[in-house]
Amino acid sequence: MTNPLLDDVKALLDKDFGDDRILKQICRACERNEVISNYERNYVRKLAEKHLGKKPEFTPTPAEEKPVIPDVVIPETQSVQQTQSFQTSVPEISYSKSKNKKIMMGLGGLALIIIVVAAVSFSDITIGTPKIDSPIDTTPVSLSIETDLTSYANKDLISISGVSETSGTVNLSIENQNNELVWAEQISLKSDGRFSTLAIAGGVGWEKSGTYTIIVDNGKETKSDTFSFTA
């Protein structure tokens, strides 16, 4: 029994058409009854149609399958009506809840007003009780004097300051432990009644250590202060 494929391959080799390597491989496969791929068969068929005058093989095209249209299921009218009735019932429930919520908020606000009124009434009763406060001395200071330190040594600077409700000047003086005058000065008052000056601890009358007294006089009253001095 002859093999048409083998005959075509040998004819193509004899006439030197196509790739000798591929054709020889197909020839060996045909002689050994080995499996030949579709690519190799198509390769030989196209060469045979082109160079050996073979007629092209007719391959019937399969009949086209008509698309299957699935059946459309139309929902029943009754189920649509049930869905619509269920959807329309939802706003009624929310309206009822909203109405109840407004009623509860109104009652809560009324209770809060009652509590506030009661608290105010109670606070009025409590506030009505008279409170006795201790009297506060609001008498303004008419004259004052002070030093920056409470003790000084020989040749220290004594910073003196104070306030007077008068205007013009005040007289300052310092006396030693024997009530002897060791320093005196007249100082002008500022616009707010304040005054200040500096004195040197030392000199005539400062020979002994002890308590010294500084005195200020504004013409209406006299104030004094003390400090210790170490000779």
Rank of each mutant, 00 (worst) to 15 (best):
Cys30Thr: 00
Cys30Ala: 15
Glu31Lys: 11
Glu31Cys: 06
Glu31Phe: 03
Arg32Asp: 12
Arg32Met: 04
Arg32Leu: 13
Arg32Val: 00
Arg32His: 13
Arg32Thr: 02
Arg32Gln: 13
Asn33Asp: 11
Asn33Arg: 02
Asn33Ala: 15
Glu34Gly: 02
Glu34Leu: 04
Val35Thr: 13
Val35Trp: 03
Ile36Glu: 03
Ile36Pro: 02
Ile36Asn: 04
Ser37Trp: 06
Asn38Trp: 06
Asn38Val: 11
Asn38Ser: 11
Asn38His: 04
Asn38Glu: 13
Tyr39Thr: 05
Tyr39Asn: 04
Tyr39Cys: 03
Tyr39Pro: 00
Glu40Thr: 03
Glu40Asn: 05
Glu40His: 05
Arg41Ser: 04
Arg41Thr: 09
Arg41Lys: 01
Arg41Met: 02
Arg41Ala: 04
Asn42Ser: 02
Asn42Cys: 06
Tyr43Arg: 00
Tyr43Thr: 00
Tyr43His: 01
Val44Lys: 00
Val44Ala: 11
Val44Tyr: 03
Arg45Val: 01
Arg45Phe: 08
Arg45His: 06
Arg45Glu: 13
Arg45Lys: 08
Arg45Gly: 09
Lys46Leu: 01
Lys46Glu: 08
Lys46Asp: 09
Leu47Ile: 09
Leu47Val: 06
Leu47Ala: 08
Ala48Trp: 06
Ala48Gln: 04
Ala48Leu: 09
Ala48Glu: 05
Ala48Ile: 07
Ala48Pro: 07
Glu49Tyr: 10
Glu49Ala: 14
Glu49Met: 04
Glu49Phe: 07
Glu49Arg: 07
Lys50Thr: 08
Lys50Pro: 02
His51Arg: 07
His51Gln: 07
Leu52Tyr: 09
Leu52Thr: 12
Leu52Gln: 05
Leu52Met: 14
Gly53Arg: 12
Gly53Ser: 12
Gly53Asp: 12
Gly53Val: 00
Gly53Tyr: 15
Gly53Glu: 06
Gly53Ala: 09
Lys54Phe: 14
Lys54Asn: 13
Lys55Asn: 11
Pro56His: 14
Pro56Tyr: 03
Pro56Ile: 12
Glu57Asn: 09
Glu57Asp: 11
Glu57Thr: 08
Phe58Leu: 15
Phe58Arg: 14
Phe58Met: 15
Phe58Val: 13
Phe58Tyr: 07
Phe58Gln: 11
Thr59Tyr: 07
Thr59Ser: 14
Pro60Asp: 10
Pro60Arg: 15
Pro60Met: 14
Pro60Asn: 13
Thr61Ala: 12
Thr61Asn: 07
Thr61Trp: 05
Pro62Leu: 14
Pro62Phe: 11
Pro62Ser: 10
Pro62Glu: 10
Ala63Val: 02
Ala63Gly: 02
Ala63Glu: 01
Ala63Phe: 12
Ala63His: 02
